[in-house]
Computed example of a mutant assay.
Amino acid sequence: MGPTGEHDNQRWEQEREERKEQWAREDESRWHQERLAAYSTLLNNIERWIRLARHAKPRAYLGQRAISRENAELLEAAVDEIQNAAITVELLAPEPIRGRVRALYVSTSFFRIDFSGNVRERSAQEAEQDAEATIEKVIERKNALRKLIRQELKIEMPAVGDASEIAKNPGA
């Protein structure tokens, strides 16, 4: 093989490597979009559950120690939506995220059970406080999950102080 043939082979190898790199970037971009969609669905379902739980929780001033049957059904449907989204996340996410998702699923699913009837004897005030504590725990876990998701997806969010500086100097 002459100098031209060797040069052609080198060029062909270089082009092949460039194509492989391009395909890898395209695959990464596609998977990034899939994970972003799955995470967004999950976080939206958790937010919906939080709103429902806050509405449904027992109210001490009304003498409630449990949630109504209708609210229990709404919460059960919301938990089902969380579980459906979690299944997709289980397939796409790394283990630290999957572990957080499982913890959130357990917290949300037991809420309905714990506050649907006379599982525990407690006053209306204790029931409301326990429900609020569970909701706050879900919010903490959701925020920790969102932070982990942002890290995994390499989504950089400016700190509040940085955002105010950006607003002052939008062209900078």
Rank of each mutant, 00 (worst) to 15 (best):
D80H: 10
Q125T: 11
L74M: 12
V101N: 03
I97F: 01
V89L: 05
R122W: 12
R120I: 14
D80K: 14
E128S: 02
F110Y: 05
D114W: 04
A133F: 04
P96C: 10
E76V: 07
L75G: 14
E126D: 14
A78I: 14
P94I: 08
I135N: 09
I82A: 03
S123I: 05
Q129N: 08
E90A: 10
L91E: 10
E136P: 00
A86H: 10
L74R: 15
F110E: 12
R122P: 01
A85P: 13
I97S: 10
I87D: 11
S123N: 05
I97K: 07
N118I: 00
A124M: 06
F111D: 05
R100H: 10
R122C: 00
G117I: 07
A127W: 02
D130Q: 12
E121K: 08
A127E: 06
N118V: 01
G99L: 06
P96A: 09
N84A: 13
T108F: 03
D130G: 07
T134Q: 14
R112W: 05
I82D: 06
A103N: 07
Q125G: 01
E132V: 09
T88A: 01
V101Y: 02
L74W: 11
N84H: 04
R112G: 11
I135S: 08
E126N: 12
D130F: 03
E90F: 04
R100A: 15
R100F: 05
R120Q: 14
A131F: 02
E73D: 05
A133R: 13
E132Y: 07
L91W: 13
Y105H: 08
